[in-house]
Amino acid sequence: MYSVEEVRENYKRFPDAKIEKIARNESKGLRKEILTVLKDEIIRRQLNRSLISWVDSETQSFTGLERQSLIRKIQNQRCVKCSEKRKLYGFETHTVKSFLIGMSTSRNEQILCKPCGKQEKLNAIVMTFFAGWWSAKGFLLTPFTIFKDVINFLFIEKISDRILNGFVDDVTGSFRRYGTDDNVIYRLIKWKNKSDDN
């Protein structure tokens, strides 16, 4: 691990574009003392001051009652798939698709109501069942994947908690910048579900 002074010297050598990239894309994972170095470098170079606001919003995580309240608000949104107002859960699906010479696997997370989430899981299991066996690796991985997704039906609450907490962590900056009203939450859930579909 680099010392604060080593990081400070490295940041001084970086071009402006690299500092901006670190502020926008990597600040969430930096230690607090390194964040101070990054902000100092932005000020020293007279870069756009909005970068400091960006860094602050990305790194000010939700904790305690604030996090619990936000997760309840997320759970009380309309389902982005069926538009029904039901409690939302985080669902995880896995698919295996095999070809004679290759195989692809995918893992998706979506935030949906229970009926839509279960349907997505069943669709993934059916897809894997019919498309997963057609290569040597697929032949080995398909039964494991199907078994895992079937067993996960027993742990919907636990998996949902992990996915919802991960979602809050991933979009903390967006919540800090745009608020946590229903429209913002709905759009961010929709964005998450689409980005995990790809």
Rank of each mutant, 00 (worst) to 15 (best):
S135A: 07
F155P: 11
D161W: 03
R24P: 06
K114F: 11
T95C: 11
A131I: 01
K87I: 00
L122I: 08
W54D: 14
K73C: 03
Q119T: 03
S135K: 07
I146D: 08
D161H: 06
S69Q: 12
T180A: 03
D149E: 11
R162K: 13
L88F: 09
N123T: 07
E5R: 10
F129D: 07
V150H: 00
R13P: 04
P115T: 05
T59E: 02
I74H: 04
W191E: 13
K81H: 06
D149R: 10
S61L: 11
S61V: 02
Q46T: 13
S69H: 13
R177W: 07
G173C: 02
G117F: 08
E66F: 00
H94C: 08
H94M: 10
N193P: 06
K192A: 10
F14S: 09
K118M: 13
D197F: 10
V4K: 12
F144M: 13
F167P: 00
R67E: 01
T128L: 01
V80W: 02
I163M: 07
D197T: 00
S57D: 13
L70M: 06
D196H: 15
Y2V: 10
G117W: 05
K81F: 06
K87R: 14
Y186F: 15
R45F: 04
K28P: 00
R24S: 08
K32G: 10
P143C: 08
G102K: 12
T36F: 14
W191F: 14
D182T: 14
H94E: 13
D56V: 02
E66A: 12
F14D: 02
L35Q: 04
L65A: 15
E33I: 05
R177T: 09
Y2E: 14
I101K: 11
G90W: 01
F139G: 09
T172M: 05
K73P: 02
N48I: 03
S174H: 05
D149T: 08
F139I: 05
D170S: 15
F167W: 02
L30S: 05
W54K: 15
K192N: 14
F167K: 00
G29Y: 04
R31W: 06
R67D: 00
H94S: 11
S61T: 03
V80S: 09
I151F: 12
N193R: 02
L38W: 00
F99P: 00
V37A: 09
I125Q: 05
R24K: 13
L70H: 01
R107D: 07
E109A: 07
I156E: 12
A17P: 01
V7S: 01
F147S: 12
E41L: 11
K28R: 10
S57M: 10
P15E: 08
E41F: 10
D181A: 12
L140R: 12
L100P: 06
P143I: 04
T142S: 08
R78E: 14
Q46F: 12
I163C: 01
I159D: 03
G29A: 09
I74S: 04
S174M: 03
N108K: 11
D170K: 15
K118C: 09
L30G: 04
Q119K: 13
Y186M: 15
V55E: 04
V55G: 01
Q77I: 03
S53F: 09
V171H: 13
A23C: 08
D56I: 02
N108V: 04
N152R: 12
P15K: 11
L38K: 06
R24F: 07
Y178T: 02
K118T: 06
R8Y: 02
E58I: 08
G29W: 07
